[in-house]
């Protein structure tokens, strides 16, 4: 059995739609929507920044739920574990993009790349946490063991994040230094801007679904390859051995 692609009609439809809507977002974000009255052209970064942040959080929630199911089913089926892993991988990618686009926007608007604001700090810790999660998944081990280890880590992350967020909020509110600039990033959006932002969220969600489906199928194949590869190797050694006996 040879598999040359993880694509199916469903993923092709999702991928095509994602491309189409992304195309519209790019055109609208750069050429059609007006510049913001306060932030100028830097507001255009928002059309990429907000959707990536949304996807990152969606991805981590998906990982947490899938890990919960994986534990509840005692890792009998590895499907949930593969979805959890695929989703976390995409989540880390999108969170990196969120942090990069966010700091570029911050440089233009606040004058600094980074602010130790609660939301930013929590996001950074969330990012590092899931980088650790992926590092554990990368260890070459039996898929079932991978599932049980990584689901525990994913569920502990759910416990950790509210604590991190709470302590960072408390930390910043007790901090007595005055904030450097007005960090109020809220933008008043007109209809078209809002629609473009919304399209961006839809486009990125489709991309997320598309990536997770493909990644999940790829993990299935590589897990399968471990088993099939081992069987094939054993058969080959046996063949060698019997050939040696008859010769």
């Amino acid at each position: 059995m040879t598999v040359s692609s993880t694509g199916t009609p469903t993923t092709r439809v999702i991928g095509g739609l994602a491309l189409l809507i992304t195309g519209w977002v790019v055109v609208s974000a750069f050429f059609i929507t007006p510049a913001d009255s306060v932030q100028g052209d830097s507001v255009r970064i928002m059309y990429a920044h907000v959707p990536t942040a949304w996807i990152a959080y969606l991805a981590f929630v998906t990982t947490a739920i899938a890990s919960g199911f994986s534990v509840a089913r005692r890792h009998r089926t590895l499907g949930f574990d593969r979805v959890a892993g695929a989703s976390a991988e995409v989540g880390v990618l999108f969170m990196a993009m969120t942090l990069i686009t966010g700091s570029l926007w911050g440089r233009l608007t606040w004058g600094t790349f980074w602010q130790w604001d609660p939301r930013l700090t929590t996001t950074l810790f969330l990012f590092v946490t899931y980088v650790g999660y992926l590092a554990v998944r990368r260890i070459d081990t039996d898929p079932r063991q991978r599932a049980s280890r990584s689901s525990v880590i994913a569920l502990l992350a759910v416990l950790e994040i509210p604590l991190v967020h709470f302590s960072v909020v408390l930390w910043r509110s007790l901090h007595q230094e005055a904030s450097v600039l007005n960090t109020d990033g809220d933008v008043r959006l007109d209809g078209l801007m809002l629609f473009t932002l919304f399209s961006g969220v839809v486009a990125f969600t489709l991309i997320f679904v598309w990536l997770v489906i493909h990644r999940q199928r790829l993990t299935t194949l590589s897990d399968l390859e471990r088993v099939v590869g081992l069987d094939a190797a054993i058969t080959a050694r046996r063949a060698e051995n019997s050939a040696g006996v008859t010769a």
Binding site: A135, I139, R149, I153, L156, E160
Partner: peptide, 25 residues
């Protein structure tokens, strides 16, 4: 969590330090 894992020396700080952030603060 990391006991028995290969490369646990570097994994332990990577996993545990973000969790310890609230405690550090």
């Amino acid at each position: 969590v990391v006991a028995n894992m290969t490369g646990r020396d570097s994994l332990l700080p990577l996993l545990a330090l973000p969790v310890l952030a609230p405690l550090l603060i």
